[in-house]
């Protein structure tokens, strides 16, 4: 089954939802419907199209999530489940291989916002972006 050929969702958002621990959705085995349970467990709604890419949700569960085998994806998800900070993440996976920082100054100027980037090579980049009318009002 080729998503490109069949006009099927290729962003895998529906599969990512299905694999969540205590997922709110199921793929019905008989009808192939993607069913999202209601919050009071009274019924469900059926999604036909992916809300992220706009293409059809496949009726059969795919074995890989964007090239990552399902089992590997689930394993990673379960490790990440209780991680809430970079400190906790570093304890599990060691130091990150890359770190990129962006600092935004939104109120220093009436007409522009200031953005400062530091990439993994310690290189600093500075960008000024014009403010929208809404941003000007918010100041």
């Amino acid at each position: 089954m080729s998503p490109e050929k069949d006009n099927l969702c290729s962003c895998y958002w529906p599969e990512k939802i299905l694999l969540l621990p205590d997922s709110p959705a199921i793929l019905d085995e008989i009808t192939g419907e993607f069913r999202w349970k209601n919050s009071d467990d009274e019924g469900y709604i059926v999604f036909k199209f992916c809300p992220k890419c706009g293409y059809e949700i496949p009726k059969i569960s795919r074995d890989c999530i964007d090239g990552i085998p399902k089992e590997e994806y689930i394993e990673l998800q379960s490790t990440l489940k209780n991680i809430r900070s970079i400190k906790e993440m570093t304890k599990t996976y060691g130091k990150p291989d890359k770190e990129v920082i962006q600092m935004n100054y939104l109120k220093k100027s009436e007409t522009v916002t200031i953005h400062i980037f530091k990439d993994c090579d310690e290189k600093i980049e500075i960008l000024l972006r014009p403010k929208s009318a809404d941003q000007k009002r918010k100041k």
């Binding site: 996976y93 990150p96 291989d97 770190e99 962006q102 935004n104 100054y105 400062i116 600093i124």
Partner: peptide
């Protein structure tokens, strides 16, 4: 440097930091 930015402009309104872990598993 970022220190220069803090010195000149003060505390930023927003800070985004992205960390990449290249080898947490075989394919991800």
């Amino acid at each position: 440097s970022l220190e220069d930015a803090y010195g000149l402009l003060g505390e930023p309104d927003r800070i985004f930091t992205q960390y990449k872990f290249k080898n947490p598993s075989q394919n991800a």
